[in-house]
């Protein structure tokens, strides 16, 4: 069970807005997060990952406190170790597809399984600049999965994939999440994005 109660000021085009979210996510659940552009969806994921600090708030994961601004507790991103898929992928230009996964895990079998699910087996020695947009996006997802995360945060993770590729990828990801008991939060604009996944929905609207 993940329990989140945070408040963060956002600097927006129209002036200052406040992102105020109070939510709970069950273990192994999948939640789709939607809301208008600039509402703070990405910031919300970054706060959970420990990359952005909110002014006030508390985050606890399975009775472990990750953040409590009152008692000045804030675990580093390294200790939270969430599987974060960045909207811009944030791939490492110096590493090949396989090296991206080896940077995170030394389990060859696990790496090969991920490459198979992401259909990147034939591109293992390619660097990101030689991959298509869809391949880069799949690599970003696989890299985040490689740490076997208990919590997966995905920012528009399927936007560059065609419907066929998406419908082949999602069942593979889902089976791993089920095995690991991973809780998944997916930020998405597109209502069709999560075809094949049963997800609860959550809307983010800044005040």
């Amino acid at each position: 069970m993940i329990s989140i109660d945070i408040e963060k000021k956002l600097k927006a085009y129209r002036g200052e807005q406040i992102l105020k979210i109070s939510a709970q996510f069950d273990k192994s659940s999948i939640t789709k997060i939607y809301g208008p552009s600039g509402a703070g969806k990405s910031t919300f994921l970054r706060i959970i990952a420990g990359l952005v600090e909110p002014e006030h708030g508390k985050i606890s994961v399975d009775d472990m406190v990750w953040l409590d601004t009152l008692s000045k507790i804030s675990l580093s991103p390294q200790k939270r170790k969430v599987g974060l898929v960045f909207q811009n992928y944030a791939l490492f230009p110096n590493m090949t597809v396989r090296q991206h996964l080896e940077y995170v895990s030394d389990d060859t079998q696990w790496i090969n399984r991920l490459l198979f699910i992401g259909k990147l087996e034939t591109f293992t020695s390619h660097k990101p600049e030689y991959l298509s947009g869809g391949q880069q996006q799949r690599l970003a997802i696989l890299r985040a999965m490689a740490i076997k995360p208990k919590l997966m945060l995905m920012d528009e993770p399927f936007s560059a994939l065609d419907p066929k590729m998406k419908s082949e990828l999602i069942p593979g990801l889902k089976s791993i999440w089920d095995e690991l008991g991973t809780t998944v939060l997916i930020v998405s604009h597109n209502p069709q994005e999560l075809v094949g996944l049963t997800a609860t929905e959550m809307e983010i609207n800044p005040i």
Partner: peptide, 25 residues
């Protein structure tokens, strides 16, 4: 900035991130 942030969320220290991600790039 997301390069080092991605490395941190993967559990890598600032030092390892500097040597293996930032420096080669």
């Amino acid at each position: 900035l997301s390069l080092s942030q991605a490395s941190y969320t993967l559990g890598k220290s600032e030092r390892e991130t500097f040597i293996k991600i930032l420096l080669p790039n």
